[in-house]
Write a protein that binds this DNA or RNA. Sequence first.
DNA 1: ACATCATTCAAGAGATAGATTGAACGTATA
DNA 2: TATACGTTCAATCTATCTCTTGAATGATGT
Lengths: 221, 221
Amino acid sequence: MCKSTDPKRALFAELATVARALGHEHRVELLEHLAQGERSVEALARLTGLSMANASQHLQQLRRAGLLDARRDGKFILYRLADDGVVQLMSVLRQTAERNVASVGALLARYFDGRDGLEPVGRAALVDRAQAGLVTVIDVRPREEFDLGHVPGAVSVPLEELDARLAEFDPATEIVAYCRGAYCLLAVEAVARLRARGFSARRMEDGMPEWRAAGLPVASG
Amino acid sequence: MCKSTDPKRALFAELATVARALGHEHRVELLEHLAQGERSVEALARLTGLSMANASQHLQQLRRAGLLDARRDGKFILYRLADDGVVQLMSVLRQTAERNVASVGALLARYFDGRDGLEPVGRAALVDRAQAGLVTVIDVRPREEFDLGHVPGAVSVPLEELDARLAEFDPATEIVAYCRGAYCLLAVEAVARLRARGFSARRMEDGMPEWRAAGLPVASG
DNA sequence: ACATCATTCAAGAGATAGATTGAACGTATA
DNA sequence: TATACGTTCAATCTATCTCTTGAATGATGT
């Protein structure tokens, strides 16, 4: 069997190339930041603590793998995810890791709730409690995604703005955060930060895609 | 730089480890074979053309990443996917690659239909044509999955048995093959082989999960 | 035109992964 | 028990990846 020209082998090689692009701690972190929106090389280098040259190289590797696009704006080069499928890929990767790698499950458990058994809020319960004004619902995705559709009554608080807007929230009212899905880390991070500041915060089970899929009402604009 | 105490960094590192396990041509191919069922190291080495030692090392790497489980049966060690999520991960990887890497799109296009515009069969059309006896529907997934539910009237022909069972098919009747989904390669491979033998073969659009999701009838047992 | 700044390129050292070889291990069969 | 066989281990060489440093590029603003 001569397989050097075998298209199947070539396909496997291409898939491996894309996977390898995800195969480095720093690149996963870069993608996680870029999941929140466009960022310049300088901003990403600062956020991750990498040198500019190093960050640039990792970003180019991700771009070569087709996971990122870049555009110039003034003196900055802005990188962004090539499409929403990249978020899905990272989510599935996280799901797989959580199911099959014990240490990831432990890390996520610690990350999700600290130590006192904070459970995510179900969708049905959320509708009731939101209508009764018992909870503040925040959407921590980038504002562009919020504009394309969000949970009725939710407030857009992109994760990056959260720290600066803490004064908006009533410490006596529970906050429910949601983002893109069960395995999107944005809401998890938001809840962790809010709880560190003394707020009562929970994460909505699942995210916007599941909300839509469940046929629940979606507000937009 | 020691970031080992930051749980977020640790999580990224774990995710990268899992991704890196997918980051080699041979390991992708091994997973693709294992998607069809349990296999011994020797069988996998033969299927892929790798040396036993090399195959063993790659398999152990996949197992360390949590993507595979192994069990002993007699003198053989049988590897299998850790769970169905691994198939999903590979599917999403392929989707992402197809969207964002031009060469993958080209490879898949060539793989899917050769050159004469063979289009996949829609679900609705399939029901009609199958009932009219105009087509033979084959399910090329592993038999275990067939038993858990399949398209009514479909015949179980696991991909590995296809070559040996060509005599069962009427060259005058069109064959429609399906597997796990739009991005599962089993049906693609089956169609390629059937067409190479002169059969008229097509791929069903989507696969069993989508069939179920569409609420179409499912036979089992 | 000149200076400035964000980004990229280029080259090198150090670390890591892949393939091959031959030996060692464990289980089944004679 | 002895032998055969599938699998894994250990050691080695080679190739590739990572990161740092310093220079080069390309657009902007004075």
